[in-house]
Computed example of a mutant assay.
Amino acid sequence: MNKPKKHSGKSTNTAKKPRTSRHGGQSPAQPKLYTVKEPGELLPFLLSTLSNMGRNSVKSLLSRGQVSVNDKAVTVHNFPLEPGHIVAIHRERAVAEAPLLGMAILHEDDDIIVIKKESGLLSIASARPEEHEVTAYRQLMTHVRRTNPHARIFVVHRLDRDTSGVMMFAKSERIQQALQNSWQDAVKERSYIALVDGKVQKPAGTVTSWLKESRTLKMYSGRYPNDGQLAVTHYKVLQSNSAFSLLEVHLETGRKNQIRVHMEDIGHPVSGDKKYGSRTKVIGRLGLHAKVLSFEHPTTGELLRFDTGVPKQFLRPFHTQ
């Protein structure tokens, strides 16, 4: 019989012996605990520590959420370990996946992930990201790597940090390119709900302009035709009073800050949007929500439609008067 491999000394098994009940039966198995002695990454640590298990078996423990570090489930293979960390192996039950912060998955298949993002969550890292900055992209990368350590996701389109609603990511560069190259044809409906300042007089309308970006990174409508990127926004009034209007907005084009610029152009900036002229913050956030995204699936051709509804706080200004 082969002798077990000698341990490298990087951890100490502090697991307790199984306890027995008063009736002689064994209580549920306690997790096996290991104390990290040297800095390193999680997967190599597990392979060294669990030397009686094969590589694929160890990776399965990770993908099933049966490994935790300091009582938090971890599935990322290269998770950094530091001396003093406690690694636990839960053999009989899977640890629940760490909850997604500021987002929820609406749909996932082999090619795409569709999510509902809350206001305040970055879609991807900012130009000067803070360490461990929470983003939808980073969380989804961790999510897909639960089952495949080499999996990746790719950005298809973005939502501003303070805009909530539905957005989509691709699971391969091929799908990303296919969606972006056919975006105008593939997307059948893309609508927003906008809470804007003031009473919009026209029940419906269209705003067309050519958008440019200033040196301060603020978008604005150019003074002359063809001077910038063509942007077309259609809107319809759903509710209004003397102070606010609730609009359904459809994008014919998808330019950066398009709705925010166009609402300022017609004299009704999005509520809470100080950058583009709003002087109100009645709901405590930007009054912009990506309600509907409907598109043809890039592989199957199936028409998918996701409707995230109207946030309740957007209706608040119309219930208080």
Rank of each mutant, 00 (worst) to 15 (best):
N2R: 13
N2E: 15
K3G: 15
S8V: 11
G9R: 00
N13Q: 06
T14D: 10
A15T: 10
K16R: 13
R19E: 10
R19P: 15
T20R: 15
T20W: 14
H23V: 15
G24S: 12
G25T: 15
Q30S: 14
P31Y: 13
E38G: 13
E38A: 14
L61W: 00
A73N: 06
P80Q: 03
L81C: 03
L81F: 06
G84H: 01
H85C: 11
I86A: 09
V87D: 07
V87K: 04
V87T: 06
E92T: 15
A94E: 03
A96P: 04
G102Q: 08
G102E: 06
M103Q: 05
D111Y: 01
I113Y: 00
V114H: 14
I115C: 02
S126R: 02
R128Y: 08
E131R: 08
H132W: 13
H132Y: 15
R138K: 10
R138F: 11
R138Y: 11
Q139L: 09
T142E: 10
R145Q: 01
R146D: 05
R146S: 00
V155E: 03
M168A: 02
M168Y: 04
F169M: 04
F169S: 00
R174F: 08
W183Y: 01
D185M: 09
A194E: 04
V196G: 10
D197N: 05
K202Q: 14
K202T: 12
P203S: 14
G205T: 02
T206H: 09
V207S: 05
T208F: 06
K212H: 07
L217G: 09
K218P: 01
M219W: 06
Y220N: 05
Y220I: 02
Y224T: 12
Q229F: 03
L230S: 11
V232I: 11
V232Y: 00
V237P: 08
V237L: 08
S240T: 08
S242E: 11
S245W: 00
E248H: 10
L251P: 13
G254T: 09
R255D: 00
K256D: 01
Q258W: 04
Q258T: 11
H262S: 03
H262Q: 02
E264C: 13
S271A: 09
S271H: 08
S271L: 01
G272R: 01
K274I: 13
K275S: 07
K275D: 10
G277I: 07
S278H: 05
R279T: 15
V282S: 06
V282E: 02
I283N: 01
G284D: 10
H289C: 07
F295P: 02
E296T: 11
E296C: 07
E296F: 08
H297M: 09
H297W: 02
T299V: 12
T300W: 01
D307F: 14
D307M: 05
D307I: 09
V310W: 13
Q313C: 14
P317D: 12
P317N: 12
P317S: 08
F318L: 12
